[in-house]
Nucleic acid binder design. Structure first.
Lengths: 192, 192
DNA sequence: CAGGGCCGTTAGCGGTCGTTAACCTGAGCT
DNA sequence: AGCTCAGGTTAACGACCGCTAACGGCCCTG
């Protein structure tokens, strides 16, 4: 067996290219032929791997939401009992994610409404649980701030961290460090 | 002549409804029939007012960008010489805008690529000038921070302020005040 | 009251898009 | 060697969509 990561399966190739294209031109703006061409097959060939175009988007969005939530839970458990460290870890994780998977971040809040009812509900539920991780730890750090306010602040910081797609070049590490500082600064202003 | 604001023209009605629909379902996801129906006429009737669907989006995006830039310049001139007050004023203005025109804010960074080359260039140029207003004043307040870093921070704070569309209810004034504090907090972390 | 814009209407055209159908091919197993 | 099946191919269908054509009513003006 190889030491290197396994070669991506055809399914994974398709998902990766679809994410890129959806992020660039919007779900409705990309045709199946184009997605097929991006992985070297023709449009209808995709139907050997996915039930339809919708299914690709659904799998992408559910996948992101699950990865975010799982990662978040891991970090919360790891630093449990130290809210400051938990928040830092959540921020670090989200920054990494935003910088590694810009296309997915873009899709995540842009194309949710294109999903079938059932998938949309699932994604929203996962998102809600992820937000809840943040809200809980921020509330521990700022007990005097109301829950609704904290929830808004968390969403706002997501907006800040997810701004990644429109960033000028600055080098990976510098950008990471800057985004972390900005996020901490925003939360710090909660109890000023 | 009436004291009340003039009734919106048909053109303005169309633009307003188109903005709402584009924001909700994406440019490609909305048909002209639907836009027409939203103002009480049928699809092709729109062509008495606009050259095409693209023209509506173009007018919306150029309009937003111009209003942001004009408002920003006004505020810069008004408080010239006091960078702290200028930044606060820019933040206030942007918060008001984001809360008043959520649909436009959404379109502004989501559907830019659907424009014809010429319009897209114009919008980008206006956006760049607006960003520059912010970058200049933030640099005055944090002279030790590099320009690239400041530019990233400004974009990130835009992301924070523009997160408005996914906000839980909290009352207009409370939301305004919170967003302002968060933005100031983020910028404050620039030279920590 | 005649005439001409303004602002609608409906019908329909041309193109695109997601999806299905029918067929093909090469690798692997028996 | 022959069967199976995963994973492609091209052709074509049906729906939809942006837009134009052709037409009509209403209001304002001379």
């Amino acid at each position: 067996m190889s030491i290197r990561a396994a070669a991506p399966t055809r399914r994974e190739q398709i998902l990766s290219e679809a994410a890129r294209l959806f992020a660039a031109r919007g779900f409705h703006g990309v045709g199946v032929d184009e997605i097929g061409a991006a992985v070297g097959i023709s449009g209808p060939g995709l139907y050997r791997h996915f039930a339809g175009k919708d299914a690709m988007l659904a799998e992408l969005l559910v996948g992101i939401s699950e990865r975010l939530l799982t990662g978040g839970r891991h970090r919360v458990a790891e630093a449990a009992g130290d809210p400051g460290r938990v928040l830092s870890s959540l921020i670090d994780g989200h920054v990494d994610f935003a910088l590694d998977d810009q296309a997915l971040i873009t899709l995540h809040d842009r194309e949710l409404d294109r999903l079938r009812e059932a998938d949309r509900k699932l994604v929203r539920q996962l998102q809600r649980q992820y937000v809840e991780l943040w809200v809980e730890v921020v509330r521990e750090l700022h007990p005097e701030v109301g829950e609704a306010e904290v929830r808004v602040a968390v969403h706002a910081v997501f907006g800040l961290l997810n701004s990644t797609p429109h960033l000028a070049a600055l080098g990976r590490e510098a950008t990471e460090s800057l985004l972390r500082r900005l996020a901490h600064g925003a939360f710090g202003a909660l109890s000023a």
